[in-house]
Design a protein around this nucleic acid. Structure first.
Lengths: 203, 203
DNA sequence: ATAGGATGAGACGGTAGCGTTCCGACGTTG
DNA sequence: CAACGTCGGAACGCTACCGTCTCATCCTAT
């Protein structure tokens, strides 16, 4: 009876499938993010998203039951391939590699607009708060690895305040690029890495 | 002819005046900020602001021609008495005093919600962007004073990168309190001040 | 070729806020 | 006392979007 005809999400044949065309789903995600960047989460109009994707409103309501689940899926689908922080040999190099990765993310023009909106929505206690909390937890785990390596190398004491480092590492670059809207050259990253390494050793 | 009957903003007699009652104006400001914190700038409903202040919509439109000018006036009126950064004798003490002032501002429950919304609105290029740019310029001037004093004392070299310091000083506390939503104890401020002073000397 | 399912387009009634305008009530001024 | 201006409240027509629904069309699989 081939019951997988209902379950399958990807095309069985090489060409595009007809069951909830995945290309359209991607187009809807893209249109959503554009709308999101322009208006902010609270003011997203699904009508405009649909027309921006040259789709009908029904195409959205067929896939997701609500704006929240639509946006939640869009974030999860997109934010997963995020920053990787491999071991670069020293604290200073680890920090600099992290900054390079962070800059790559913060450079994206849509991220620059959507990220502050997410923070605002979270501060306000909006409905997407839970989604963001989940992402924040993942982000925190990456930091822990970086700090653990530095402690093992003896670059940081075992009593180091991990919570404070969590504030210190990403904050200056975020502030510069997102809050102040400046760009960050390679020399800026290097100087910031030096300053951060010095700050961490002081903690 | 007593032409000041038109100009005067304050009551001539001890009792409340009738011409655009200033108490009502203040009540409207307060209601605006509450609404702002709950919904965000883009979603502010002047109808709700009015009813929250137990006023009629006309009371708002009699005073301001648009939402932008209403909010703009409210911000300017409120944000002017901002942080002061007096000379405390040393870089480390100056930094710590600045952090204490910043914490005082960021602790306010309405500020915690309105500030991220302002950043998001600014990143989006919304209509209040110009108002915020003006405030940012004032804020920057305060930092220049703090750095100038440290250079004069010989604590920082004359070639120090002021732009980077502009990113480094407020970022970690802002990140901790606003983005992460944590509070900041006195020892947190002290440790951050030490870390920041070490970072600045590295710049 | 044909049947079935997704699609784009758009109509529908409902909700919400806009900005304006009117009203009767009130208090201050003269 | 009378005139005036502001007050709260409410109604106005207007626009935008919601979430549902219908329908002709197109594509794919059988």
């Amino acid at each position: 009876m081939e019951r997988n005809r209902i379950d399958e999400k990807k095309p069985r044949k090489p060409a595009g499938a007809a069951l909830k065309r995945p290309e359209l789903t991607q187009a809807l995600y893209r249109a959503l993010f554009e709308e999101w960047a322009e208006r902010g989460y609270a003011a997203i109009s699904l009508e405009r998203v649909a027309s921006r994707a040259q789709a009908g409103k029904a195409a959205i309501y067929r896939r997701w039951p609500s704006k929240l689940s639509f946006c939640s899926d869009a974030i999860k689908e997109t934010a997963v391939p995020l920053v990787e922080t491999p071991d670069c040999g020293s604290l200073q190099e680890d920090v600099q590699a992290f900054l390079v990765n962070l800059r790559r993310v913060l450079r994206h023009p849509l991220v620059r607009k959507i990220l502050p909106d997410l923070e605002a929505e979270r501060a306000r206690g909006g409905e997407i708060t839970s989604v963001l909390d989940h992402l924040a937890a993942e982000r925190r785990a990456r930091f822990q690895d970086l700090i653990d390596r530095a402690v093992l190398r003896g670059e940081l004491g075992q009593t180091v305040d991990r919570d404070l480092i969590l504030d210190t590492l990403p904050a200056p670059l975020y502030w510069r690029m997102i809050v102040r809207g400046q760009n960050a050259s390679r020399t800026v990253l290097q100087t910031q890495a030096s300053m951060l390494a010095a700050a961490l050793r002081e903690a």
